[in-house]
Design a protein around this nucleic acid. Structure first.
Length: 310
RNA sequence: CGCGGAGUAGAGCAGUUGGCAGCUCGUCAGGCCCAUAACCUGGAGGUCGUGUGGUUCAAGUCCCACCUCCGCAA
């Protein structure tokens, strides 16, 4: 294989998938840099981040600086030939980008120059794209703006949500890096500049955006719901309680009731009137309750018909 | 001890000031119908989260402890 010294930077599950694959393929991963462990859940239990679990299983040292911006002196000592990042979670400072002899490359979750930013995978779903993909690119000071080396396309099924697409993207990222890395390390992979006129952005989704906007079209609502599912979940209010909506389906263009009104609540569906048609809510969760299919929800909520979600 | 909601039939829920444990769906049997996710009749299925806990003539219901699940916050 190669004895080039690789540092992998990444934090969540998708990063762990690729890290595991690189190690299995025999690459010399000398260190992993990840976000610090954070308390998870109500009990505030400190859980190791996914990439840390993988690294430790292979006895690879893990570094978790609180602010990489200021703490990266240790990287020089590791003498990396190349740094590969995927969803690390912090801005990487120029000083760190300059350390590896062969530079820093990033696996980005979109077909650049579309969807630069922190949430490209969610944005692809939100906009009901049919195709997206991973891009291997050079890391530069400006976020996700470096030249592109290679891409791996991924089809988005109408049934995909965030959870399923992240899984697909992780697999695609691994295929991409295994295909492109040998060429890159041999300096046989030329970069292509991004067409700046086609740049769009996918900034991280703010908590207040998780509440659905009923002024939007049924297509936009459908996209939002799947982009935010299974976590954290998009929601509307039913009376004073949050009703999370994890899965929906576009039914028709009919206008039967007022926008936000529940116009059907029986075994054939839980239907919500939107500004331009009907959306069927398939999987929901009321605050304090468990997630359930619409039939179970209707069984326990006898007076839904005619109610309005806000 | 961060705030709050909840454990009752396979699923989702109700259960009023303690007094024979109910509803919707599912399921099983039968009926109606050209037919059905529709409709009608009947049945099965619960030691009400745990506690050889407390109060009471009597606890799903009130009190105590513990376990588990969930929403928010981090």
């Amino acid at each position: 294989m190669t004895d080039k010294r690789i540092i992998f930077m990444g934090t969540p599950e998708i990063s762990a998938t690729v890290l595991e694959g690189l190690i299995s393929a025999g690459y010399n991963v000398v260190a992993v840099i990840a976000q610090p462990d954070r308390p998870v859940g109500r009990k505030k239990i400190l859980e190791p981040v996914p990439t840390k679990v993988v690294a430790q299983a292979h006895n690879i040292p893990v570094y978790q600086p609180i602010k990489i911006r200021k703490e990266y002196d240790f990287v020089s000592e590791l003498k990396p030939d190349v740094i590969i990042t995927l969803a690390y979670g912090q801005i990487v400072p120029q000083g760190l980008l300059d350390i590896p002899a062969q530079g820093c490359i990033n696996l980005h979750g979109s077909l650049l120059p579309k969807y630069r930013g922190a949430a490209p995978i969610q944005y692809a779903l939100m906009n009901n794209e049919k195709v997206t993909g991973m891009t291997l690119m050079k890391m530069v000071k400006e976020m996700d703006a470096g030249e592109m080396y290679a891409t791996e396309e991924v089809e988005i099924s109408p049934l995909d949500n965030s959870t399923s697409l992240f899984k697909k993207m992780g697999d695609a990222a691994l295929r991409l890096i295994l295909r492109a890395l040998p060429l890159y390390l041999d300096n046989k992979l030329p970069g292509t500049p991004q067409d700046e006129s086609l740049v769009t952005f996918a900034p991280s989704i703010k908590p207040e955006e998780e509440k659905l906007d009923l002024n939007k079209s049924k297509e936009q609502l459908f996209g939002f719901i799947r982009a935010l599912s299974d976590v954290p979940g998009a929601y509307l209010y039913l009376d004073e309680l949050k009703l999370k909506i994890y899965q929906s389906e576009i039914v028709s263009d009919e206008m039967i009731g007022e926008v936000g009104e529940i116009i059907k609540a029986d075994k054939r569906g839980l239907h919500l009137q939107t500004t331009n048609g009907i959306l069927s809510l398939l999987s929901v969760q009321l605050e304090g309750k468990k997630r359930m299919d619409y039939m179970s929800f209707i069984n326990g909520q006898p007076h839904l018909l005619g109610k309005k979600l806000r």
